[in-house]
Nucleic acid binder design. Structure first.
Lengths: 223, 223
DNA sequence: GCTTGATTCAAGTGTTTGTTTGAATCTCGA
DNA sequence: TCGAGATTCAAACAAACACTTGAATCAAGC
């Protein structure tokens, strides 16, 4: 965390991240950013030139820090698990676990996920280049892992499976504010995060017709 | 379509919808809205009072027009299918089909889905009331249908399954711009929409351990 | 203690924002 | 043909916007 370079610069990035995630780039003024971290209004232009450039610096950092490398790591020791359906299922569980870890269980500030959703919703061409460099590689690795889980799977099928995994998880991030205003919905506590992890893993494992690991077996008469 | 009341009013709503969906409310000026439909700038304030009110009128209309009533309809003739696992599977397929129909295959303008995603991402308290009135009822019906598919399912489990269904589908809407800039991704044509429909249905049916309807059986050696 | 470069600050730039205003125009029944 | 209500229009409003400026302040090496 090389913060010693300039503490205001880091403070601006953090404050901007929180505000961009909550209200969007257009909905956030540089005055609001500066006030949030008790900096001068001119500090934004001094450190980043323009508001847009601040945004680009910010999302590059967020995308670098939130890469999901589990799938890539798995592909490097493919021979250890790819032949064994049960280990494939466990590999899937590990990937889902890592994604949930990134955005829910405190590895990163809570607003990282929401900012990531905003980038997905409205990726400018400039952002597109950063994405292709960082995010798409992780996505390709994920598709490779999924192809190992079901030999003979086509490229198009693996994309559908990757979409299923990502879609089920991102849903909780980008619709969080809506879901939490539904009466009776569970809060995003540890128990809920664990239930999401188990549920999504089971959906994928059963969908890919893999054997269910023992620790994911459902206990009967739980209600 | 009582458009004869005021054609400019309708034109403003449509133009605003397209722009809000693309650039967000904060990222859209009333000048841009007026220019898009060749209306005067003051027309927005004449017909809607404020920009925020225009937004509220718009989202109320969008949410009213895009309700997914299939689940509610299914629950009204529950005795016709709920006892038969195969018919449960077909009911699920019908619900997924309706959702895809709403946002992909031309029932509504293309920007409806994207605007819906923006509402989910950032629901103001005022919007929350509209949501609870319209959207949450559909969501409750969906959960009821899912509970029928697996007798003994708890309320919490049915919520997880509903999230899985919604999450997999909304993913294609809110991440559309990103997904389409991934090299080699399929465009959102009819073939892709059908593949999404079949894939998501299969994932849910296998996940809920229901029998697979004949028309969803996968043909081997398709690659 | 002085110099130099980096950083902060208050005040200002011009532009764009949402909104208002009052006159002009349109619509249509009497 | 007239008049009244609905709608449109160009012009203007203050406030907020991103960004700039030049002086003040700071930290550190000599």
């Amino acid at each position: 965390m090389e913060q010693s370079v300039s503490t205001t610069k880091e403070a601006l990035l953090f404050a901007a991240g929180e505000l961009f995630a909550e209200h969007g780039v257009e909905g956030t003024s540089i005055r609001a950013i500066a006030e949030k971290c008790q900096a001068n209004i001119a500090a934004v232009n001094y450190h980043f030139g323009t508001k847009e450039n601040l945004y680009h610096v910010l999302i590059r950092r967020v995308l670098e820090k939130t890469r999901c490398r589990r799938a890539e790591a798995l592909m490097k020791r493919k021979q250890d698990w790819a032949h064994d359906p049960l280990k494939c299922a466990e590999a899937l569980y590990g990937i889902v676990e890592e994604h949930i870890h990134q955005y829910f269980t405190g590895t990163h500030p809570r607003w990282y996920g929401r900012l990531f959703m905003r980038i997905l919703l409205q990726p400018t061409p400039a952002i597109g280049e950063i994405m292709s460099e960082l995010v798409m590689r992780d996505f390709d690795s994920l598709k490779e892992v999924l192809r190992c889980c079901r030999p003979g799977m086509s490229r198009e099928e693996s994309e559908l499976w990757a979409d299923s995994l990502i879609g089920q998880l991102t849903h909780y991030i980008f619709a969080e504010d809506f879901l939490l205003m539904v009466p009776g919905r569970r809060s995003y506590d540890e128990a809920f995060q664990r239930d999401i992890l188990h549920h999504v893993s089971r959906v994928l494992i059963r969908g890919l017709e893999l054997p269910m690991p023992a620790f994911l077996m459902e206990r009967k008469s739980n209600a």
